[in-house]
Write a protein that binds this DNA or RNA. Structure first.
Lengths: 225, 225
DNA sequence: CGAGTGTTTGGAACGACGTTCCAACGTCGG
DNA sequence: CCGACGTTGGAACGTCGTTCCAAACACTCG
């Protein structure tokens, strides 16, 4: 370990592999992560990678964890409600920017990534004044909404693609909804124009507020404020 | 159309293909759906299937829609709150029984399946007394929680596998949590034993109640009841 | 300083996948 | 009875995740 090693190329390491994987996923989407493409980006062969990473699933989990850990960096500094909002929005934006993270969380990153998020959310739940015997449930519900909503938003963004106009797409869906069967889809037809002009981020935050309000009704000393 | 066709074998149809796909997915999981396995189950070749189904993505979407449409069969008959609970629980159980549905909803079934669910949820939101200008947002949030929580539950069930003992697994995770770093994971360690004895279905329903309670705070004439 | 040891490398090869292609087959209108 | 046309299903293509192994390397010890 005297000279920090410069072998044939530049030394392959798990960290370098994960970084390259993140870059590849960002560029080419979930299907763009290939051991062949990764080999080429790292100027090596597929076999070499397997000495640092067990398989693709673990690699995806590591890439997911790298992104999530990055968004969880700072320490919270406001009221519990504000902290939950900030935490949720940070995850939402991260998943929106790296849509493959949603799939990565489903895969098997629960081992490292999920507890990381759980802890951050849970501390705010605790500070919110929720009775201790409900900590696990309330934290789980909050986390499920955050990740579930973010994942569905990412799925929508994926079918949209990077080069499709958002307003155009929303307009097309809205038109489709307006042309549905009048009896079978009376409600959906009514709100078709509401969907045309909605903002995903804003709607997500309203959902957080809704859940927080629900939590508020079960906390002894707190109103809706 | 006189004799309802009995060709070489028994006539290939989109419906027969989708049914076989559902059966295959239930038996072997998301990875078990293969055009080769499907060909064998239908006693035909892979090429024949492509005359009835565009590609695998569409097939998965059709299979997903078949399952979801089945759970949405009956008409609701109780209070809006009870109906939401029943609707949510029906979807939760369906996804728990067919975990691949979670992935199928993400894929591209939003075209047919998603509006189906949206309409059902939305009607209850309307009957709940939510102001009309918030229908779209509230319905979306409710639906995001339902599908998000169910999807994450299905992901947990998938890593569990059909033959692993649930209590044993929960105990193992709980133990892992208790051995986390005391400073970095103080909250998670505290609730480790709560997770050991929790019930997924019950927790899901508590989440529904939490969201409903949150909705209740924004509805003019309604208390928490 | 050189031989030996154990790890890292990377290219070839394997089986399985989604998908395409096309010759054979079946059905049906004229 | 015959041509036209949609259906069938097996072969084949390119790509994927993964495995295997001989060559290349860094390091330790005599």
């Amino acid at each position: 370990m005297s000279s920090p090693s410069r072998r044939r190329t530049e030394a392959l390491s798990r960290e370098r592999i994960v970084d390259a994987a993140v870059a590849l996923l960002d560029e080419a989407g979930e299907g763009g992560l290939t051991f062949r493409a990764l080999s080429q980006a790292l100027a090596t062969g597929p076999g070499a990678i397997y000495h640092h990473v067990a398989n693709k699933e673990e690699l995806l989990a590591a890439a997911t964890d790298a992104v999530v850990a990055g968004t969880l960096a700072g320490e919270p500094e406001g009221s519990p409600r504000d902290n939950v909002r900030a935490l949720a929005l940070g995850l939402f934006d991260a998943i929106d920017e790296h849509p493959w993270v949603a799939g990565g969380l489903t895969a098997s990153s629960w081992q490292a990534t999920s507890p990381r998020i759980f802890e951050r959310v849970g501390r705010q739940v605790r500070d919110l004044g929720v009775p201790q015997d409900r900590w696990f449930t309330v934290t789980s519900v909050l986390m499920q909404y955050i990740l579930g909503a973010a994942a569905q938003n990412a799925a929508n963004a994926r079918i949209l693609g990077p080069d499709v106009d958002r307003d155009e797409f929303l307009g097309a869906v809205s038109t489709t909804w307006e042309e549905l069967d009048a009896d079978e889809y009376s409600f959906t037809r009514t709100v078709a124009d509401q969907m045309r002009s909605h903002d995903d981020r804003e709607q997500f935050l309203e959902g957080i507020d809704l859940v927080l309000a629900g939590i508020g009704t079960t906390v002894p000393g707190t109103g809706t404020t």
